[in-house]
């Protein structure tokens, strides 16, 4: 029973990781940029979620505001911060991204205050029994939300012309452009989708903790990097599996390795182990 409960808790955490890491891997696949500031959009998504829910009483409306708003901000970040740096070596964009992330954290603190925000009447806090295990509605919603959103993204990538164009651009941008794909538009769409998913993750984490803090993105900012490396940098399917696996491993690790290894260290121990055995990542091609 405990084992099953830990598995479920791991999947909840893994769903959050997946929603955040998918956006990162999209950006990396397309531009070879490690987009650290992505975690800032995750945090801001959480803030918007709490503020809109507190103002209107509707969590759904909050998601509908936070996701497109962060999507547009993601495009904004690409155009103002990364696009001008594309001709430079990748570490230039990485440094810009880290700087942007620090600035975002401090702006959140200045604007929203150091104490963080909470829901005045937190939605989805009742418990439901799932196969005999008690889960918060918010935890269930997190898992279902992740499945729906990432499933939708998979459909978009595999079944639509935009998806095909996007995959073609990842494989060979010059060739794709020669075939008439508007690369700038593909990049915008990728940033939009990835950032919107991060915003959804932010709202979900706000619900789970009933707390959004300026530094909420600091752990995801580096853990998501470990996840996309594990998943084989730019590989969507690999990223998903790595995210869920890490969530579950952390859940068991917290209980059985907690005295030896910090929860956040588990990700990196796992990363080192995988890279020693499979340097291309769990699912990357050699």
């Amino acid at each position: 029973m405990l084992a099953f409960e830990l598995l479920l808790q791991g999947l909840v955490q893994g769903s959050i990781y997946a929603l955040i890491a998918v956006g990162l891997t999209l950006v990396y696949g397309l531009l070879r940029i490690l987009h650290v500031a992505h975690a800032g959009l995750f945090t801001l998504g959480g803030y918007i979620g709490v503020i809109v829910t507190n103002a209107t009483g509707s969590l759904l409306l909050a998601l509908l505001v936070a996701m497109p708003a962060m999507g547009l901000l993601g495009i904004g970040i690409y155009r103002t911060c990364y696009q001008p740096l594309l001709s430079r070596p990748p570490y230039v964009a990485l440094i810009a991204s880290i700087g942007l992330f620090i600035m975002m954290e401090e702006l959140f603190r200045l604007i929203f205050g150091p104490y963080g925000l909470s829901f005045t009447a937190p939605p989805l806090q009742d418990t439901v029994a799932v196969f005999g295990v008690n889960l918060k509605e918010a935890e269930l919603a997190t898992m279902i939300g992740a499945v729906v959103l990432i499933g939708g993204l998979a459909l978009l990538t595999l079944r639509t012309r935009i998806g095909t164009a996007s995959r073609a651009t990842v494989t060979d941008p010059k060739m794709a452009e020669a075939f008439g794909v508007n690369i700038g538009r593909i990049r915008d769409i990728n940033f939009f989708v990835g950032s919107a998913l991060a915003a959804a993750a932010g709202v979900m984490v706000a619900l789970l903790n009933n707390l959004v803090e300026p530094t909420m993105g600091s752990v995801p900012s580096y853990k998501a990097l470990a996840i996309i490396v594990l998943g084989g940098l730019g590989d969507l399917r690999g990223t998903l599996i790595a995210a869920l696996a890490l969530g579950v491993i952390e859940a068991y690790g917290t209980i059985y390795l907690g005295n030896l290894l910090d929860r956040d260290a588990i990700a990196f121990a796992f990363l080192i182990a995988v890279l020693m055995l499979r340097p291309q990542g769990l699912f990357g091609r050699a």
Binding site: L2, E5, L6, L8, Q9, G10, V12, Q13, E139, V205, L208, N209, L211, M216, S218, V219, E250, A251, Y252, T254, I255, R263, D264
Partner: peptide
């Protein structure tokens, strides 16, 4: 940095 205590609670 932890805010998610699901495994400990279980």
């Amino acid at each position: 940095k932890d805010r998610q205590f699901g495994p400990i609670v279980a």
